[in-house]
Amino acid sequence: MNMPYAHVIGDPIAQSKSPLIHGFWLEKLGIAGRYKARHVEDGGLRDYLSKYREDGSWIGCNVTMPHKQSIISEIDALDPVAETLGAVNTVVRHENGVLKGFNTDAEGFLEPLKPLLEAEHLFRMARIIGTGGAARAIIAALADNGFTLVVAGRNPSKARALLDELAPRGEHHAIDLSYFAEPTDFPFDDRDRCLDLVINASPLGMEGNPPLAFDWSHAPPGSIAYDIVTNPLETPFLRSAREAGCPTIGGLAMLIGQAAAAFEKFFGAQPPREYDAELQGLLTK
Rank of each mutant, 00 (worst) to 15 (best):
F267D: 00
D189H: 14
D105V: 10
P271H: 05
T248Y: 06
K265F: 00
E54W: 11
V8R: 08
K28R: 15
P66M: 06
S57K: 02
Q258M: 09
M1C: 09
P211I: 12
R93T: 09
D105H: 04
S217M: 12
L163M: 04
T284E: 14
I129V: 15
L122M: 08
E83G: 12
F109S: 07
L255Q: 07
R127I: 14
R169S: 15
P183V: 13
R239K: 15
G43C: 08
A82I: 10
L149A: 06
Y275V: 02
I139Q: 05
N62V: 02
P232S: 13
L177E: 02
G205N: 08
S73M: 05
S157T: 14
G97W: 01
V151H: 02
N200Q: 05
D76L: 09
I129F: 12
F186H: 12
E41T: 13
L162W: 02
N209S: 13
G86T: 08
M3C: 13
R273L: 15
G86W: 07
P80G: 10
S73P: 00
P187I: 13
I138T: 03
P247A: 14
M3H: 12
P19E: 09
P211Y: 11
E74N: 09
L252I: 09
L117R: 02
I9G: 00
V88R: 05
A32H: 10
A219C: 12
D144R: 15
P220D: 00
N2I: 12
L29S: 11
I31P: 00
M3A: 14
D176C: 12
Q15H: 15
I138R: 00
P247L: 11
L116S: 10
P112M: 09
P115D: 08
L45W: 01
D105Q: 07
L163C: 04
R160K: 15
A32Q: 13
T148I: 10
S217V: 10
E207Q: 15
G208E: 07
F186Q: 09
Q69W: 04
S70T: 15
H121T: 12
T184G: 04
E243C: 03
